[in-house]
Design a protein around this nucleic acid. Structure first.
Length: 602
RNA sequence: GCGCCCGUAGCUCAGCUGGAUAGAGCAUCAGACUUCGAAUCUGAGGGUCGGGAGUUCGAAUCUCUCCGGGCGCGCCA
């Protein structure tokens, strides 16, 4: 038996196990019980829980669903936790639980506190969650922010479900883009030396954010870089510029309470790890992991030299039919094979990404999640093909595409001119509306739905704005405790709430809230397995809504429903225990989403 | 032309991996503050779940096919 404070199986999991046992007893071994689910009924009048057991098993058993339901129901009627079993509709088995189940369920919340809802389905399995991975060529924008918030919340969710999660950021510091960045920074360096650089040429980054980089280079190197050929100054400037951009990016993410644990450099795959200046061993020659990966794939028969048909659209003027090095991704479900080398002999982004994902697999991550912008949708199949190839079919890559964000202000699109480099940055948005509004708003939507982000509405302090609605629920709960303390009705010993006579909570609204609290672990587990953090946000909204409704019921119509009853300390303590349960779950859920749970919001 | 995503109330969106009479918020209308915080709550109206066919005890959910919108389609990441 599990001790009272051990996060054991939650109520729904427990009842599901009991139903499966009952069905197994009726049908004998060999029956597939995995499709049996126990869920809350659509209508509360159907009881506390419903199961599809009879309907999913009827065919295999060769019985009518309702007959089978009756047989299973007979077993369940003997269950100590079940008060009543009904059969309804096509063969649903509706369960009404014994009255004492609900006080016990609330007590579990109070006993487990911050650990309530945490599960073990993850079983300590290692999962790599990669997100953001924006090019270090400019400030993060709001779209990056959405991917970052999503990846971070999903990671927290998986941790809560018992997975061993690593949050990772892939630095694209090896492609042509960072060379462009370096040339742009070099221009700012010449400008810092007093040169008139005029307009920024087409194709370079025009934003002001590189001026500081240019100034630093001028301070450190004087005019020495100017005397060098590009091949010499480029790596120096590139390194300085990407380091500065990454520092900015990390700073922007930190403002959103996002701290990736691993920053993985694309360049390190090609040139090897940065030599450690304090190492006692002589530095090893740089290893080209990409070349090794391609060679291994070639040996395995997944790489060949060949030609591709011309693309179906786009400009065919610069199309040149040539033989190239191709990854046979069609063997793994892709539509066409994919090139690994550019015409100048350097690696394609895809080639380094294959090596990168091999690195993930080699580091022990059979489960990988990749959070990507929706404009990368065309790359999903080839990446999943690559993971299959480098992991021998043992790796699993779930790619979550995050749709674009439309920035609005009072319903009007915010004008952005990328060409002039004056687009709204993520930092500006976070500074304007705050971390909590950004995070909750972005999570209060499925990842694959386009998000309208209205700068005016997200700071509105009304029920129109879900984040304030939920946070207000938490603050209101805390407010009840303050009032109870003022009136001398709050027990000094926190343990007193756990010992309260919770059977006094008999109002339908109160029982409904307890049922909702009992649902939290089940919701968390499902959200984690589905990789859908938005379910947490919706759950919290619903819980807050039930709490607000119960609060208002204690108005002048029904003062006996108030949480604090001056002349009835016993009932007051029981209701304070309920409030404690609500506050605990709201705080836990908000924490998963990275949103604060304030004690007051005046 | 091909691939992926989306289409649910006037608007913005959920719908718990196939369950019972499809739900919230906004907006509209009608109500509740000498309150434990009205940043709240109660009620009403509002639907061929884009159309059609199929799979089965049962479909918003799975398959196919159209319609409409978005993204992508060597040598950008």
């Amino acid at each position: 038996m599990l001790g009272p404070s051990t996060p054991g199986p939650h109520l729904f999991a427990e009842m599901q196990a009991r139903v499966r046992d009952a069905a197994g007893a009726v049908l004998g071994s060999g029956a597939d019980l995995t499709r049996i689910v126990v869920e809350p009924p659509r209508d509360a009048s159907h009881g506390d829980m419903a199961t599809n057991a009879a309907m999913v098993l009827a065919k295999d058993a060769g019985q009518k669903p309702r007959d089978l339901a009756e047989a299973i129901a007979e077993k369940l009627r003997a269950d100590a936790k079940i008060e009543k079993v009904d059969i309804a509709g096509p063969g649903f088995i509706n369960l009404t639980l014994k009255g004492e189940v609900w006080p016990d369920a609330l007590r579990a919340v109070l006993e487990q506190g911050k650990t309530y809802g945490r599960g073990t389905v993850g079983a300590g399995k290692k999962v790599n969650v990669e997100y953001v991975s924006a090019n270090p060529t400019g400030p993060l924008h709001v779209g990056h922010g959405r991917g970052a918030v999503f990846g971070d919340a999903l990671s927290s969710l998986l941790v809560a479900a018992g997975f061993d999660v690593t949050r990772e950021y892939y630095i694209n510091d090896a492609g042509a883009q960072v060379d462009v960045l370096a040339r742009s920074a070099f221009l700012r360096y010449r400008e810092a030396l007093g040169e008139d650089i005029g307009d920024i040429p087409e194709g370079l980054y025009p934003g002001d954010y590189l001026k500081e980089c240019g100034a630093e280079l001028a301070a450190d190197y004087g005019d020495k870089l100017k005397a060098m050929p590009e091949a010499e100054w480029l790596p120096i400037v590139r390194r300085r510029a990407t380091d500065m951009m990454m520092a900015e990016i990390r700073n922007d993410l930190a403002r959103l309470r996002i701290v990736p644990e691993v920053f993985f450099s694309e360049r390190s795959l090609i040139e090897g790890e940065e030599p450690d200046p304090f190492a006692s061993e002589p530095p090893r020659p740089p290893a080209d992991v990409v070349a090794e990966t391609i060679a291994a794939l070639r040996t395995a028969g997944h790489v060949y030299e060949g030609r591709l048909p011309p693309p179906k659209s786009g400009n065919l003027e610069d199309w040149e039919d040539r033989e190239q090095t191709l990854f046979r991704s069609t063997d793994f479900g892709d539509d066409v094979d994919r090139p690994l080398l550019k015409s100048d002999g350097s690696y394609t982004y895809f080639a380094t990404d294959i090596a990168y994902h091999k690195s993930k697999f080699d580091r022990g991550f059979a489960d990988m999640i990749y959070v990507w912008g929706a404009d990368h949708g065309g790359y999903v199949k080839r990446m999943q093909a690559a993971v299959k190839a480098v992991s021998g079919g043992k790796g699993q890559l779930d790619i979550k595409l995050v749709q674009l964000v439309r920035l609005l202000r009072n319903g009007e699109p915010v004008k952005m001119s990328k060409r002039a480099g004056d687009y709204i940055t993520l930092r500006e948005v976070v500074d304007e509306v705050g971390k909590d509004a950004v995070r909750f708003d972005m999570l209060y939507r499925k990842n694959d739905a386009v998000l309208d982000f209205d700068l005016a509405k997200v700071i509105e302090q009304s029920k129109d704005n879900p984040v304030f609605y939920v946070q207000y629920g938490h603050a209101r709960g805390k407010s009840i405790f303050r009032t109870a303390a003022d009136q001398g009705l709050l027990p000094a010993d926190p343990a007193a709430l756990r010992k309260a006579d919770l059977a006094r909570l008999t109002d339908p609204g109160e029982l409904s809230i307890i049922r909702k609290l009992a649902l939290y672990p089940r919701m968390l587990e499902a959200a984690a397995l589905a990789h859908e953090p938005h379910r947490v946000a919706f759950y919290l909204y619903e819980l807050a809504s039930e709490f607000h409704a119960q609060w208002t019921r204690g108005g002048k119509e029904s003062p006996h429903l108030r949480f604090i009853i001056q002349d009835d300390p016993q009932t007051t303590v029981a209701r304070l225990a309920l409030v404690q349960g609500i506050v605990t779950v709201l705080a836990c859920g908000l924490d998963l989403l990275g949103v604060e749970a304030p004690d007051e919001m005046r």
